[in-house]
Nucleic acid binder design. Structure first.
Length: 262
DNA sequence: AAGCGTCCCAACCGCTGTGTT
DNA sequence: TAACACAGCGGTTGGGACGCT
């Protein structure tokens, strides 16, 4: 979706990722890890910049990504942490199992912010007192979230102050063990990663499942149930370049593996 | 059914932080 | 210590999806 596919001045592809690109990226990262995002696309056969690859992997392709509706518990955590931390989306996302900073940020801007502002507006309409001269933009009712909002939040007259005052920062034991995106990145680059479906890959619906199946089909039905290994038997010395690996010299997927062939 | 407006979210951009030389 | 390279983060964009008229 989103941006029209195009190329930058160096011929790097931009815009929506294709299933084929996803397969190449998954295949490479699962086998070799993220030893260098800048160099990775060259070896993985992708005409993408490293940044784009990193973003795609962290926000969409890596295991344990949780997609779909947010639970009220997750939203409470986001709201509370945002009150405490501000727009530290990566820090907030680190406390939510399977959620990415980008996703949390999007959810905040599209749902939670409006909801909080509306609740604030309701509260202030009882006694309208502004303690400063800042213009507060109150969303029109048509701008408010529609039926996608979880029922408990949509129906409840909940305000920020009514949310249970649990300070998650003060209770690390309440935090989920899910590593942050940066932690995952370093994991995949530095250590052997063994991730199984039992670790919490969540596919929320059939459509998502089908899409994942399209992407991962080439890896066999047991891709997510077999141990997920970033084979680092080559990089125990701390650095490994896959230049000499036959499957990355010869296309494992199709004839245009080498992006020069496009 | 068609046109229009709004929403959602994947992806890009630019800046900052960190590590290395 | 400066310069450079790379990773990570947060703000923003833009186009498909969806709802309304």
């Amino acid at each position: 979706m989103v941006r029209t596919p195009c190329c930058d001045e160096r011929g790097m592809k931009k815009g929506t990722w294709t299933p084929e690109e996803d397969r190449k990226l998954i295949a490479y990262v699962t086998r070799y890890g993220c030893w260098n995002w800048r160099q990775l696309p060259k070896f993985a056969g992708l005409s993408r910049c490293g940044k784009s690859c990193r973003l795609r992997w962290l926000n969409y392709l890596r295991p344990n990504i949780k997609r779909g509706n947010y639970t009220s518990e997750e939203e409470e955590i986001i709201i509370r942490l945002h009150e405490k931390l501000g727009n530290k989306w990566s820090a907030i996302a680190a406390q939510l199992q399977g959620r990415t900073d980008n996703e949390v940020k999007n959810h905040w801007h599209t749902n939670l912010k409006k909801r909080l502002m509306m609740n604030k507006h309701k509260a202030s309409s009882v006694s309208i007192t502004h303690d400063d001269h800042h213009e507060e933009v109150v969303p029109k009712s048509s701008d408010l979230p529609k039926t996608t909002a979880p029922a408990d939040f949509a129906n409840a007259e909940t305000t920020v102050d009514q949310i249970p005052q649990i300070d998650y920062l003060d209770y690390p034991e309440l935090w989920s063990p899910q590593p942050s995106s940066s932690e995952v990145s370093s994991m995949t680059s530095d250590t052997a990663v063994a991730i199984t479906a039992a670790d919490g890959l969540v596919v929320e619906d059939n459509a998502t499942s089908a899409a994942m199946g399209t992407i991962y089909g080439d890896f066999g039905d047991n891709f997510w149930t077999e141990p997920f290994l970033a084979d680092n038997s080559y990089n125990t010395s701390g650095f490994y370049t896959p230049l000499m690996e036959p499957e990355f010299l010869y296309p494992p997927f199709d004839g245009d593996f080498l992006y020069g062939a496009t």
